[in-house]
Structure formats: structure tokens, C-alpha cells
Write a protein that binds this DNA or RNA. Structure first.
Lengths: 143, 143
DNA sequence: TCATATATTTAGAATAAGTCTAAAGTGAGA
DNA sequence: TCTCACTTTAGACTTATTCTAAATATATGA
């Protein structure tokens, strides 16, 4: 089969990404990674499962979703986001960034580091800051 | 000042605090509020239950701990703190402040607002920031 | 290639945090 | 005192997640 669609290969493939992080790119992992890479919705494990389970050339169980999310997290491919009690959300944007929760819509928007980059230096000598996470709550203009 | 201070209620009592927030000060609620007010450990519901259940002149069920924590949260007496997946911690320091998680010990330390107060202004016109929470990870000097 | 080892996926059981339910207890006011 | 509304309680239930053990798939070596 030689009918390759060149347009779809403009961004690095999920498969390449997994390989580069030392994660064996099984069909299930690739499909979950692809979904996370193309969404901005910060989905939960359950949302990943139902989004991916439909248009899927491969079976996918709940346990595999959790296994894969943990594997991808440990490999540094995705990050956990804690915005509300009792559920973990996932974000394939692994750059150091922050989040803005729109309290009207519940939508979670990424906020780039450069908006808040001075924070890590604010604590002076008493603390050695490895990292930090800013969680904003408010309203997005036009949201 | 006398050498022997008989006045044990130097800080406003938990009972007064609950009354001032419109929460009926039942024995269970008072005892839970007292515990939260005197600790800096940011306990979970389960930690509240086991800490309070022992030296207690009153019975206390798990459901009451959850009921009370939710009641106190809704009344603005305490705040939730989300630092790790799958568990909610509680903080009786309701001033706007932030948290520092010591990655060696797991201890959570309060960080006052004035250390980071400029953050809310960093997002410019695109966002209306109602509030924000900074979660630091690192090491406390001498921790 | 085949055999075998290793890793992955799976369904469903198990666990843990938290909520719900319905009955019993408590207490303020008529 | 009686009553009504509120609170507490035990335990059932729910939900998110992890665990287990068997089945599959993949990789390796002869």
C-alpha cells in the first residue's frame, strides 16, 4: 500500500514521540498519545477511554487506559493536572506551563511559563524550589 | 504578664468561629474545627478522623467527618488543598496563601500571599482572574 | 522458521475516597 | 411536654483507580 498521506505527517508522529522516550509504541499507546496530542481539553482517564474507544481499529480496555496514562506520565510524555477533587486530568503539553480554569465553563486553558516565570525566584533562600504550578480561576475574555 | 497564665483561650474559640460563620457548633463540629485550627499538617478527612477520634468526649463517625468538612468548607471556615491525586487535604488557614510541598518529607508549608502577590496581575486583559493558587515543590532549608 | 521469553492487554475483582440513605438522636421553641 | 427541623450514625453505594491472573502479542535466539 503506497497511498501515504503526506499532509498528515507534518507534526512528529505519536509513534516517534513514544520511541524517543523509550516507550514501546503499541497500537493502544499510539492511539491514546495521538488523542492527547491533538486535544486541548485536559481529559480524564474516562474521557480518554470514551473518546478513543469509538473510531478505533483496536480494542481498548479501561485498565489499558490507566496503564498507558501512567506509563506516558512516567516517561515524561504527558503530565497530570489536578484542578478538582477526586479526578486526575492529563495534558500532553509537557512544557513548563500553568492552567487557567474558567469558572463559568469549566474549561482549562494553558498559560505559558513566560507569563509567570518570576515566581520561582520569589521565595528567597529559605526554600529550594524545584518547580511550581500556578492554578488560576476566573473568566476568559469572550468565554 | 503573670508567670502562670490561666487564660487558655488566647485565640478565638472554634465555637465562636463557627457561630460567626452561621454554623451550629455541635460537639463534633467544634472538635473537628479545633483540631484543624491547631494543626499545620493539612490533614485528609481520614487523618482528621483518626486524630480526633481518640481523645474525644463524643462519638464521631466517618460520615460526620465528611459532612463537617464540607459544611466548614461551604461556610468559609476551611479550604481544600489539592496536592496529590486521589485525596483532598484541608487547611484552616483561610487567608489567601499558597503551598510549598517538601518533596523529601511530603510536608506542606503555607506560603503567604505577599511572597507571590504580583501573579494575579500577570495575565493582562485576556483573563479576568478571580483567584489563583501556587503550588511549589522543592526542599525546605533544614527540612 | 519454531520455541521460548518478555511485555502488554484484558476483564473483572479489589481498594480507597467520598457520598447517600434511612433511622435514631438532639435540642429549641410552642 | 410535644413537635419539627437539624444532626449524627452505620452501612450501603458510587466513582476513580489499582491489582491480579490469564490471554495475547512481540521479540529473541537456535
Amino acid at each position: 500500500m503506497t497511498a501515504h498521506n503526506h499532509i498528515t505527517e507534518q507534526i512528529p508522529s505519536a509513534e516517534q514521540l513514544l520511541l524517543s522516550r523509550g516507550v514501546k509504541p503499541t497500537p493502544q499507546r499510539v492511539v491514546i498519545a495521538e488523542y492527547l496530542l491533538q486535544t486541548e481539553s485536559h481529559p480524564t482517564a474516562d474521557e480518554v477511554l470514551s473518546a478513543v474507544a469509538q473510531a478505533l481499529p483496536v480494542s481498548l480496555s479501561r485498565a489499558t487506559v490507566y496503564n498507558t496514562l501512567n506509563t506516558l506520565k512516567e516517561a515524561g510524555v504527558i503530565k497530570e493536572v489536578l484542578t478538582e477533587p477526586g479526578r486526575v486530568r492529563y495534558d500532553a503539553n509537557i512544557s513548563h506551563h500553568h492552567h487557567f480554569v474558567d469558572v463559568k465553563t469549566g474549561k482549562i486553558v494553558d498559560i505559558p511559563l513566560n507569563k509567570v516565570e518570576a515566581i520561582g525566584k520569589l521565595l528567597g533562600d529559605q526554600y529550594k524550589v524545584h518547580g511550581f504550578q500556578v492554578l488560576f480561576y476566573g473568566e476568559v475574555e469572550g468565554g
